[in-house]
Design a protein around this nucleic acid. Structure first.
Length: 561
RNA sequence: UGCCCCGUGGUGUAAUUGGCAACACGUCUGACUCUGGAUCAGAAAAGUUCAGGUUCGAGCCCUGACGGGGCAACCA
């Protein structure tokens, strides 16, 4: 094992201790166990990176295992999306794609064994009665009147349950543990319930399905998982996890160990599949992959890279402390990655026409410009320059405040990779709106010509005759409140940000962007990072803003107002 | 009122396992810049929830408070 300079997180600490103690024959085996009842989100990404990362770091393996024990909630669509998202993130489970449902036969056999060992019994009571007898955290539960049936009777009944003799809810199989346990999960938890439902994998083979607690640890055991990493809310389940394992464990085999860590929380969003599903079903967002969603598919469509998400997952750390990560860390992770990778282009979101009065009509110059100042190897390209251009409306002010070093009447700016121009006059319409700028250029200042003149501001621009039209979608956080779920008596949807999506049409982009494919990523200089949306059609590209560039001027302006 | 877990700058994570608290994000200066981006330099910001105790010495160990979270689905 190579010496690691950075410190180990507490799970790595446990693993290295286990390894040192010679446990599990020196093997490390993890698993990522999603329930296929929704799309994966950034919180799952943390878990994926953790589990697959642990396996990679310690030379072990990580399985993908669908936790599909509840046929009423699980669907093939989700299975497929999960597979795609994990692959996209850059992880490989090779041939180890498993399902809890693969183990239904084994689980059933174990249940019968537990019945014969007097560790499980069939209860005829209703869900309400069972809940009532369960007690409360401070009051011990009462034992079921069916608790002392003979193993033979239990076995007969359980087999009848399996054979479909009973309706849903008529009977359940319970573990016989301790109705007075201070841990609610140990009060004779339900192992099997009857569901006359067909399952997305096993079809109609079964009408009894195991509960999570009975299925999860046993599945880990079957797969030879050494370290079963889950989130904090399962902490109180651990004694039960261990108890079930005790019932079937064979000495000398690998015994899985459950370790809990704090799930990822991000501010200004919600992170539960249930809430996300609600947003989808109510049409508040356009789907699971809406770029405003914290889902992996949403982030992908928004323009996030797998690398940026992996780096983010690394940076948030692994602890048992409940925490809320600031979205700015996520945004920083993409900016940092895209800064190195994204080709620079010029695009004008809200065009303002500029006419260079002293530039010959009909003349077109091809000017060379660098594709990425951060990476020489990305080369250069040519952009057309002509008498009529577009610049950003925001880049001109008739009566600007101090420190505004963009264009103003009588002022000068450099057009990126082109010339220095001076604004001679702003043309207005009847309503007093500025509709066009009349400018002049200094022919001696062409970029790359060795011209020495300096001006304070540099603007992006695009040649009017050569520009292509595009739609650009700007996104902001989905919620205005840092913790939409944190308000008692108020629905999280009350905190939706009405401006989370702004669609801008009529944007003017340099010709280079006429030929792009979905998910291509660019930096629109001085604006932000953008990604081609699958809604694009030939000749009509649609771009999603992944994240804006840091805007120190915008900050100054906001401070003033 | 039971059980379990957690408590370090605004946020998140560290601290060679007891040696006078570091890194990142964010914030704020300034330099540089043909992206007000990037980069570079610097600053503010915690004395580690509190109170005792052990120790030459405690963020790390012990005790007790306080604060936060989780647990009573035939969900996972």
């Amino acid at each position: 094992m190579e010496e690691k300079r950075s410190s180990l997180n507490f799970i790595e600490q446990i693993i290295t201790d286990d390894l040192r103690a010679g446990k599990n024959n020196g093997k490390v085996h993890t698993r990522f166990p999603p329930e296929p009842n929704g799309y994966l989100h950034i919180g799952h990404a943390k878990s994926i990176c953790l589990n697959f990362g642990l396996a990679r770091k310690y030379g072990g393996k990580c399985n993908l295992r669908y936790d599909d024990t509840n046929p009423t909630k699980e669907e093939q669509e989700y299975v497929d999306s999960i597979r795609e998202d994990i692959r996209w993130l850059g992880f490989d489970w090779e041939d180890r794609e498993f399902y809890a449902s693969d183990y239904f036969d084994q689980l059933y056999a174990w249940a019968e064994k537990m019945i014969m060992d007097g560790k499980a019994y069939v209860d005829d009571q209703s869900a309400e009665q069972i809940a009532e007898q369960k007690g409360t955290p401070t009051v011990p539960g009462k034992e079921s009147p069916y608790r002392s049936r003979s193993p033979e009777e239990n076995l007969r009944l359980f087999r009848e349950m399996r054979d479909g003799k009973y309706g849903e809810g008529e009977k359940v199989l319970r573990a016989r543990i301790d109705m007075a346990s201070p841990n609610m999960h140990m009060r004779d938890p339900i192992m099997y319930r009857i569901m006359h439902r067909s399952h997305h994998r096993t079809g109609d083979k079964w009408c009894v399905y195991p509960m999570y607690d009975f299925a999860h640890g046993q599945s880990d055991y079957i797969e030879g998982v050494t370290h079963s990493v889950c989130t904090l809310e399962f902490e109180v389940h651990r004694p039960l996890y261990d108890w079930f394992l005790d019932q079937v464990y064979t000495p000398g085999t690998v015994r899985p160990r459950q370790i809990e860590f704090a799930r990822l929380n991000l501010n200004y969003t919600v992170m539960s599949k249930r809430r996300l599903l609600e947003l989808v079903q109510m049409g508040i967002v356009k789907g699971w992959d809406d770029p405003r969603m914290p889902t992996i598919s949403g982030l992908r469509r928004r323009g996030y890279t797998p690398e940026s998400i992996r780096v983010f997952a690394e940076k948030v750390g692994v602890t048992k402390t409940d925490s809320v990560i600031d979205v700015s860390l996520l945004e920083h992770s993409v900016r940092d990655d895209l800064n190195k990778k994204a080709p620079r282009v010029m695009g004008v979101l809200r065009p303002l026409k500029v006419v260079i009065e002293n530039y010959p009509e009909g003349k077109v110059e091809m000017l060379e410009t660098v594709n990425n100042p951060e990476d020489e190897s990305m080369g250069t390209r040519q952009v057309p320059f002509s008498r009529e251009l577009y610049i950003e409306q925001d880049d001109f002010m008739e009566d600007p405040p101090k420190k505004f070093f963009r264009l103003r009447p009588g002022g000068e700016v450099r057009l990126k990779s082109a010339y220095i121009i001076r604004c001679e006059k702003a043309v207005k319409n009847e309503k007093g709106e500025i509709i066009e700028l009349r400018c002049t250029y200094d022919p001696d200042t062409r970029s790359g010509s060795g011209a020495q003149r300096k001006v304070k501001g540099t603007l992006h621009w695009v040649s009017a005759a050569h520009a292509i039209d595009a739609e650009v979608r700007l996104y902001d956080r989905l919620f205005n409140d840092p913790d939409p779920m944190g308000h008692k008596d108020r629905d999280f949807k009350e905190f939706l940000n009405p401006d989370s999506l702004k669609i801008i049409t009529g944007c003017k982009l340099e010709p280079r962007l006429g030929n792009v494919r979905p998910l291509d990523k660019f930096q629109f200089q001085r604006i932000g990072y953008f990604c081609v949306d699958p809604d694009s059609t030939p000749g009509k590209p649609v771009f999603n803003q992944t994240v804006p560039l840091k805007d120190t001027w915008g900050k100054v302006v906001n401070r003033g107002s």
